[in-house]
Every structure is written in structure tokens, then in C-alpha cells.
Amino acid sequence: MKKPALLILFLIISVLGLSVVKTFVANRISTSGSTLGAIEERINFYKIENTLLSEKLYSLSSLTNVSSQADKLGFVEENSNFVLTNPIPIALKQ
């Protein structure tokens, strides 16, 4: 008779203990929805910021932009290439 009574007592204590823990945990996390929302908003903000900066970077480094900027700054195309070549190592019959 003694053993079943102990077991029942243990179960009752466990149930009560877990209920208390559940209440405590639920109370702690009940407001985390707002925190989570704020974190997600922040992540989204940085993602958007990152995409906008990439967009700007690509526009500035595009050849279309570089070319038009070069034109504005007065760069001109070099048409006469000057190349140094080695002399031919044999005597040519002229």
C-alpha cells in the first residue's frame, strides 16, 4: 500500500511542478511576439538596404556609366597603338 501512495504523490507533484513551469515559461515568452516582429523588421530593413546599395553600386560601375563619365571628363579613344617588337633574328634577303 505504501508504494502506490508514493507514486501517486510523485505524479501529483510532477503535474503541479510542470504546470508551474509552463505558466512561468508562457508568462516569459508571451511578449516575445513583439520582439520577434521587431527583429524580423530589422532583418528586412537591412536586406532592403543591401539590395538598394547593390543597385547603386552596379549602376555606378556599369560600362555605360563609366563611358559617359569618361566622355564628360574629356577622355578620348587612343587610335594609334605604339608597339615595340623584337627585331627578326635572321638576315633578310632584300
Binding site: S32, G33, S34, L36, G37, E40
Partner: peptide, 10 residues
Amino acid sequence: HDAFGKPILA
């Protein structure tokens, strides 16, 4: 979301 519409899980 919870009863107030706040997200409670990712």
C-alpha cells in the same frame, strides 16, 4: 500570430 496579430513564430 497571437490574439493581437503579433507574430509568435518565425
